[in-house]
């Protein structure tokens, strides 16, 4: 499609985003302000991730998009089509064939490689925002490494619920310095952030980019007596029988019947193709999980 510049954005915008990404990688976990552009989709639909992907993609890349782990939801399909049209890149639903993976709120189950790049869509990049609404104050708190408030929040979880009830967007400390919002991924995914791939985070509406280089130490905040726990529904996937994957709960009828399925559709598909069958699964691998 020659009517668009490669990957939609103009070159000066891409340079601005690229400079922000480089500073983000040099200061892991620090939120770099950038001049977020209007994209042909509403804020909240991944405009930050899309801008980071646009600045990162090359014509040789294969691109994958997931939304809550699924390749076939509206958000994922439309972003994939957007880059098929504007960057003419190959796309895939298979995690291990992708070079760049844009994600909304999940990390794929498959372990990512060194040559892969994971781009997160971030709604609220500031982990302290719901504790302190003023940007001037949160910026100071990051500068002074003043993160006591975050521990108070986790402590209040314990005093009210008997455990840390924060289950997604669980705050992490990056390489012992910046407290970072890992985007609203389930806390089940937090331990995976210590990975060989580059992780880039884009928040379009909030105009922030941040990054985590490969093998960076990521520690989920916790207490000695209430250690961090990567939790998931205590079931196996009803389609592929996986016990190690993050599960979505699907209501089947109004009689209280329900099923649990992998949120990572590619992981579930590849397991079923390999012959794994769950409680409600059938041998026919073509049967859709919907």
């Amino acid at each position: 499609m020659s009517d668009y510049n490669f990957a939609y954005l103009d070159e000066q915008t891409k340079r601005m985003i690229r400079r922000a990404i480089l500073k983000g990688l040099a200061i892991p976990g620090y939120q770099v302000p950038f001049a977020s552009r209007e994209m042909p989709m509403p804020y909240g639909w991944g405009t930050g991730g899309v801008q980071v992907s646009a600045a990162t993609l090359t014509p040789d890349d294969t691109f994958k998009v997931i939304d809550q782990g699924a390749d076939d939801t509206t958000n994922a399909v439309s972003i994939r089509k957007f880059f098929e049209r504007t960057a003419n890149v190959a796309t895939t639903e298979e995690t291990d064939k992708a070079d760049v993976i844009q994600t909304r709120h999940r990390i794929p189950e498959a372990v990512l490689r060194e040559d892969q790049i994971l781009v997160y869509q971030v709604p609220i990049p500031e982990p302290l925002r719901f504790l302190e609404p003023r940007e001037t104050e949160t910026r100071k708190m990051h500068a002074l490494e003043e993160y006591g408030l975050m521990h108070v929040k986790l402590y209040e979880d314990i005093s009210q619920h008997g455990a840390i009830s924060t289950s997604y967007a669980y705050p992490v400390k990056v390489e012992g310095r910046y407290v970072m919002d890992p985007s609203p991924i389930p806390k089940f995914d937090n331990p995976k952030m210590d990975m060989p791939a580059i992780q880039l985070f884009g928040a379009g509406r909030e105009q922030r980019i941040y990054a985590v280089p490969p093998y960076t130490k990521i520690v989920s905040l916790d207490f000695e007596d209430y250690p961090f726990e990567a939790s998931k529904a205590d079931h196996a996937c009803d389609l592929c029988a996986a016990k190690d994957s993050y599960l979505d709960e699907v209501i089947l009828d109004d009689q209280g019947n329900r099923m649990f399925v992998c949120s990572d559709t590619d992981y579930c598909r590849s397991r079923r193709a390999a012959g794994h069958v769950g409680r409600l699964g059938t041998k026919n691998q073509l049967e859709a999980s919907a």
Partner: peptide, 17 residues
């Protein structure tokens, strides 16, 4: 556009590694 994309990928890989 594409030359800069390839060059940036190299620069980003370098800064990340």
């Amino acid at each position: 556009a594409t030359d800069a994309a390839h060059a940036f990928r190299a620069a980003m890989n370098a800064m990340a590694r």
